[in-house]
């Protein structure tokens, strides 16, 4: 089975999903940033009262805020959020997530149930981990570091 067939057969729910930071649109930026730092996550999802994704406040939003010179304490995240949220359903094929990342340029994808309720987050990182699981014999054996491999050798 080719990798593309595999992507078409397996569902997004099999990807490693992360817990999303779901916030109200009126949340101030400083609070959202504190949560993103605490959870080491590059985005917060703006949701409506039904917990459906409405926008995404991410690291690029933060850069735009800094350049605009606005206060983190009084500016709502909705003012700098991106309304173009990547949304996939948990029972969609992984190929949908792949296309959203590679073709549409989304870094994060909100994963929802059939009702549109936010249940998690995936994206570039989730797909990269999936690829690593699929091709562990090629990927997981690689040396990593900031020094040339000849300086990383261990033992005699």
């Amino acid at each position: 089975m080719s990798f593309k067939e595999q992507l078409s057969r397996e569902q997004i729910r099999t990807l490693p999903l992360r817990d999303a930071i779901a916030l109200d649109e009126h949340t101030v930026a400083r609070a959202a940033i504190a949560l993103m730092r605490t959870h080491s996550l590059g985005c917060a999802v703006i949701v409506d009262p039904g917990c459906r994704p409405q926008g995404i406040f991410n690291e690029q939003s933060i850069i735009r805020m800094l350049m605009a010179g606005v206060s983190l304490d009084t500016t709502a995240i909705s003012a700098f959020a991106d309304p173009d949220v990547g949304i996939v359903r948990a029972d969609d094929p992984i190929l949908f997530a792949w296309q959203a990342v590679v073709d549409q340029g989304h870094r994060f994808l909100c994963v929802t149930d059939d009702e549109g309720y936010l249940i998690g987050l995936t994206g570039q990182r989730g797909l990269a981990e999936y690829v690593c699981d699929c091709y562990a014999k090629q990927i997981a054996v690689q040396r990593l570091g900031s020094a040339p491999w000849m300086l990383q050798r261990e033992g005699a």
């Binding site: 990269a128 690593c132 990927i139 690689q142 990593l144």
Partner: peptide, 15 residues
Amino acid sequence: PSAAAAAAIAVAGHR
């Protein structure tokens, strides 16, 4: 090998 770049992204978690 290109798998080394994949490992840096997927295993080490660098973007």
